[in-house]
Amino acid sequence: MKLVKNIAIALTLGTVALTGANAADAGKHPLQIDWSFSGPLGKFDQASAQRGWQVYKQVCSSCHGLKYFRFRNLADIGYGEDMIKAFAAEYEVPGDVDDFGDPTVRPAEPKDAFPSPFPNENAARASNGGALPPDLSLINKARHDGANYVYSLLVGYDDAPADFELGAGMNYNPYFKGSQIAMAEPLFEGAVDYEDGTPATQEQMAKDVVQFLMYVAEPSLEKRHQMGIKVLIFLALLTILLYISMKVIWKPVKEGKNFYDE
């Protein structure tokens, strides 16, 4: 019976997918920001990424995990070893079992991944009115026009139009699919005190955290951009060289030489 049911579900889903019965409101087109990391020569803005780390740590991390990010990765956005150790030590992670076989906890070390705010999905949903805050490790790559989308979402909260029916516990945000989102507006002016004295406006914090999340989603971005230039220059020169070789080698063919005349 379970078999039949499973097949029925799979078939229904397959048919739904094939017929595309999914006219969900795709959300408003995101605002376009000129990011430091976009373009062939794009780089991370370290100061901004560091501020973004602060925003993530103090605001986002209360609900959103960052499971693919390890404390040691902070070195890439300009933090020294001591700073990284200090950041890690603020968190506790499960340690080895002790001599009596009981579980232990220990302070996190640079090698550890950023600890998830919730022990499991059910706990996460229970604390968030049934909604599951997604892990943010790849969020900038997991949405169309990711960086602009995340930025727009963070600054896009608004009062719902009079004719819009907002679900219980939902918030109006035109950039989100369906225009209502369970997450309450997370960033308010002055939500963090930037160590470098940058005024913590909503736009500034949103930009900084997107910068940080871009680094988390694509840590190889700078290396990739730099290597790409070298590879393209090499290929361009090689191709020119091959073109000239071709022209030289083909000269007798173009002159109509018969290579099989004895």
């Binding site: 790409g228 393209l232 191709t239 080698i249 083909w250």
Partner: peptide
């Protein structure tokens, strides 16, 4: 050597475009 060199030149052009995708728009 005629078509090997011509194919090699074509490969150079093709790989240039391929590399543009790998390094600048991988997704």
């Amino acid at each position: 050597p005629f078509y090997t060199v011509k194919d090699a030149f074509g490969a150079g052009v093709f790989f240039f475009v391929f590399a543009m995708f790998i390094f600048y728009m991988p997704n």
